[in-house]
C-alpha cells in the first residue's frame, strides 16, 4: 500500500474505533447522559427537518456577519495605524492590552447595561471576541515588516504615502487574512456566550435551551453543527489564505 492509502486506512479505522467505543459506552448509560451515535444522527435529522437548527443559525449568521464586518474595519484600520505610527501605539496600547486581558465574559454586564440583551448587544459581544485577533495580528504584522521593507522603500526614495499604498498595505495582506480567520474563530465563542448570557436565541441559545431541557441527543447534534461550522471556517479560510498569499506560510 502507498503511504497516503495507508494513512486513510488508519484514519478510517480510528473513526470506526471512536464510533464503536461511543456506541458501546452509550448503550450502558441512560440516553439523557450520553445518547448513542445512532440517536444523535436521528436527532440531527429532526433538528434539520424541523427547522430549529436553520432558524438558530440564521439568527447567528446575521449577527456574526455584522460583528465581523465591524471587527475587520476597526481591527485592520487600527492595526495598520498603530503598527505604522509608533507614538499612537504607545498611547493606546495599555488600554487595548487591558481590555484584551479582561476575560471577555466580564464585559457581559457592561454590554447589557449599554446595549440591552437583544441583537445589538449580541453583535457587540461577538465583536469584542473577534476584534482583538484581527487587531493584534495586523498590528504586529505591520510592525514586524517595518524595518526591512521600509528601509527598501527609503533606499529607493519612495515617498511616505506611496510606501503606505505599495508596501505596507500589500505586506499586511497575509496578516489581515490570518487575523480575520482567527477573529472569526473567536467570534464563534462570542456567539455561544451571547446565546447563554444575553437573549436566548441563535445557536448559543438553542444549545442552552436543549441543555436545560435535558434533550441530550439534540444537544450533541447542535454541538456537532458548531463543530462543523468552526472546522469549515478554519479550513476554508486557510485555503483561501494559501491561494491569495502563496508566499506566506500561514500560522
Amino acid at each position: 500500500m502507498t503511504a497516503p492509502a495507508r494513512d486513510w486506512a488508519v484514519r478510517i479505522a480510528a473513526l470506526a474505533l471512536l464510533l464503536l467505543v461511543w456506541q458501546q459506552v452509550a448503550q450502558r448509560l441512560p440516553a439523557a447522559i450520553l445518547p448513542t451515535p445512532v440517536r444523535v444522527g436521528a436527532a440531527a435529522r429532526d433538528l434539520l427537518t424541523g427547522g430549529e437548527l436553520a432558524l438558530a443559525w440564521g439568527q447567528t449568521v446575521t449577527q456574526v456577519a455584522v460583528a465581523m464586518a465591524l471587527a475587520s474595519v476597526a481591527g485592520v484600520g487600527l492595526g495598520l495605524l498603530l503598527g505604522w505610527y509608533r507614538p499612537l501605539d504607545q498611547l493606546l496600547s495599555p488600554l487595548l492590552g487591558a481590555l484584551f486581558l479582561t476575560p471577555r465574559i466580564a464585559l457581559v454586564p457592561l454590554i447589557a447595561l449599554w446595549f440591552g440583551l437583544q441583537d445589538l448587544a449580541k453583535i457587540v459581544l461577538i465583536l469584542a471576541f473577534g476584534f482583538f485577533e484581527v487587531f493584534f495580528t495586523v498590528r504586529d504584522g505591520v510592525r514586524g515588516m517595518e524595518r526591512s521593507y521600509l528601509e527598501l522603500a527609503r533606499a529607493y526614495g519612495v515617498p511616505t504615502w506611496r510606501t503606505l499604498r505599495t508596501v505596507v498595505l500589500p505586506a499586511a495582506r497575509p496578516y489581515v487574512l490570518t487575523g480575520l480567520r482567527l477573529g472569526l474563530l473567536h467570534a464563534l465563542v462570542g456567539v455561544v456566550l451571547a446565546g447563554f448570557f444575553l437573549e436566548t436565541s441563535g445557536i448559543g441559545g438553542l444549545i442552552y435551551n436543549l441543555g436545560a431541557a435535558l434533550r441530550t441527543a439534540e444537544l450533541v447534534a447542535a454541538l456537532l453543527s458548531v463543530m462543523v461550522v468552526g472546522l469549515a471556517v478554519n479550513v476554508g479560510l486557510r485555503r483561501l489564505e494559501a491561494r491569495l498569499t502563496p508566499w506566506q506560510v500561514t500560522r
Binding site: E151, L152, Y156, V158, P170, Q248
Partner: peptide
C-alpha cells in the same frame, strides 16, 4: 536616485512578480 542599494537578503516584495519588483522604484 544617483545611488542604488542592493541588499544582502535580496529584499524583494514577495507579493510582486519579478517585473513588478524591478518596476517598483520607477513608480511615481
Amino acid at each position: 536616485r544617483d545611488r542604488a542599494f542592493v541588499f544582502q537578503d535580496f529584499r524583494l516584495l514577495p507579493w510582486r512578480t519579478v517585473l513588478g519588483n524591478v518596476v517598483f522604484p520607477l513608480e511615481g
